[in-house]
Simulated assay, not measured.
Amino acid sequence: MVISQSIEINGYIKSKKNIENIHVINKTAKIFTVTNNKGEFKIYGSINDTLTFTSIQHKPKSIVLDKNIISSKTCEVNLEELINELDEVTVGKILTGDLYSDINNTDGDPPINFYDVGIPGYTGKIATQSERRLSEAGEFKPKMLLGLLTGGIPLNPILNGISGRTKELKQHVRMERKADLLRTIKVNLFEDFFSIHELDESLHADFFYFCEDDPDFYTRCNGTSDIEVFEFLKEKLKQYKQNLNTKDD
């Protein structure tokens, strides 16, 4: 009876690479989780359930929960490092495909940056075109009207506010950020999500646009864990399928 029931498995990943945030999926029970910074994970499973492990730094691996794992409630998994080597080519110097070796083997001086000449420079995130335009346009605030008394009122924020250009630029920035976030989600979760949640392949793109249109999409998915994003996608998939059934009716 114990073996036939779904129990919580305590697992641990072993690898030479980073073992945090590895996706662990019970494909049989359709459950998803990720490892912590020690490579540990907890997931429910029953005998003969299939667990899959995926990561951009490791080769995918699948195991079947046997009697020993279920009885001990523990699971240790060794993941093999995924090495993306370039084909050997000859361009002046011989390149091996090992980036560190090739850099040391190349001639030429590195480009000069602002540190070399002793001047301050910006090292933060590079702004997008829409973000730069929004910054240049400025934002109108009521306290700017006090500048009328001193003759130092900034005109750009007022003119852009009146014309609606500032509002339009803010909308462009929001759209860019949502599109970038959606691309990141597709890269990180696309294959794993649809490996346990069925949806016709022709509807995949439409489903993700449906998620992006949700008013809470950016708040729910930006800066959150893969598990939280996965749960959001599950909620949206349920709504999406309900909408499809309504249209069919």
Rank of each mutant, 00 (worst) to 15 (best):
I227F: 07
I162H: 09
N68T: 06
M144D: 12
G152Y: 04
I185D: 02
E198C: 10
F32Q: 00
V77K: 15
Y218Q: 09
G147P: 06
L199C: 10
I70Q: 09
L244Y: 03
K67E: 13
K38A: 00
V2M: 07
I83M: 05
T106F: 08
K38N: 02
D180P: 04
G121M: 11
I47K: 11
T106V: 13
L244I: 11
E80M: 15
P157E: 02
P60Y: 07
Y122G: 01
D98C: 09
I22D: 00
F140P: 03
F32T: 03
T54L: 06
K17Y: 06
K27L: 14
N26R: 10
D200C: 09
L134F: 03
K42H: 01
D116A: 14
L134M: 04
L155S: 10
V24E: 09
R177M: 07
E191T: 14
K30T: 00
F207Q: 02
L65E: 05
I47W: 00
R183F: 04
D206P: 03
P111M: 09
R132A: 06
K73H: 03
C75S: 14
S55F: 02
E191K: 15
L155V: 14
F232K: 04
P154Y: 08
N156F: 06
N160R: 10
L169P: 09
V91T: 15
F210R: 03
F32A: 00
H197I: 06
D87K: 15
T90D: 05
L146W: 13
D87W: 08
I94R: 12
